[in-house]
Amino acid sequence: MKKTKTIIELKNVTKKFGTFTAIEDVSFSVEKGEIIGFVGVNGAGKTTTINAMLGFSVPTRGTISLFGERVVPSNAHLSHRHIGYAAGDMELPLHLTGQQYIDFVMSQFKGDHTDRLEALLKQFSPQLEKKIKTLSRGNKQKIALVAAFMTSPAIVVLDEPTSGLDPIMQDAFLELIRSEQKNGVTIFMSSHYLQEVAEVCTRVLLMKNGRIVEDLSAERLQRASGKLVRVVSKKAVIPPPHAKQATTTDNEHGVTTEFSYDGPIPQLQVWLAGLKSVTDLSVGDRTLEAEFRSLYDEGVEVK
C-alpha cells in the first residue's frame, strides 16, 4: 500500500454489458478521511461503479487506482487487505454460523483485532450462534457490517448498508461512521437514505444514467436551503425570480402552482403580497428529498 493522500481514483471509467452502457466516463478521486455519500436512483450505476472499484468487474475503459496502485481483478485482493466491504444485498455463506463467518473473515487478515471485534459485537449485537441461512436480513446485515469494520480497514466501501436495519441499528451505524471519521477512516457509501448521507458524509457524488452529475459538499444537501411554495388561485400565476422547478396543474379548486424558491425572503414576501384571487397558500421548508430531486433534475455533468 502506497502512502498517498488520494486513496481512491477513477479515471474515465466506462462499463458496458453488451450494447448497454452501465456507467460512462466516471471520474472522481477520494482523499484519506473523506466520507463519501454515493447517491442516485436505482439503476443509476452506483453498484456497477463499486463493483469495478473493488475489482469484481473489469472496466470496459478507464483506470481505477486504490492506494495509488492500479486495480484489476487479478490483483484486487492486495488492496482488499485494507478495505472493508458490506452491501445491503450481500450474501454470506449460508452453511456457516455467524461466528464461523466472522472467524473465517478474521483469518484472512493479519493482526489481532479481538478488541475491535468485541466492541462492534457489543454495538450491533448480531446473532452469531445460528446458521446464517436461518437469520433475518437485518441480522445478516449486522454480521456483514461487523465483518467490514472489525479489521480496522483504511477504506470501508458500503453499498446500501442500512437498507435492512431497524431504526435503532441505523443510529448505531451512523454513530459508528462518525467515530470512524474521527479515526481517519475513508468511507465510500452508496445509500438511498438522504438523511443519513447528509448527517455523516463530508462529500456527495450524485450519479445519474451512469454518469457522475454532481460532486458537492454534504453541507449543501444538509442545508436543504430554500422554501417550497404552493399557491392555489383562480388564474395561473407567474412564479417570482429565483423560483425553480415550477409546475402548474389545473383542478376543480383552481390552478395550483408549485415551485422551489431560494432567493431573498423579502422578495418572496413582495411577490406573495401582489397575488390576487388566491384560494390557498403554503410556504414551507424544502425537504432533503426535494433538494435531491432538484439536483437530480438539473443533472449537470461535472467536468
Binding site: G55, P73, H80, D89, M90, E91, Q108
Partner: peptide, 17 residues
C-alpha cells in the same frame, strides 16, 4: 449465482487461491 462468490472476492483472497 447466490452472490457468495462476490463476498469471497471482497476479502483479501486472490482469485487464483
Amino acid at each position: 449465482e447466490n452472490g457468495q462468490l462476490r463476498s469471497l472476492t471482497a476479502l483479501p483472497i486472490s482469485r487464483t487461491a
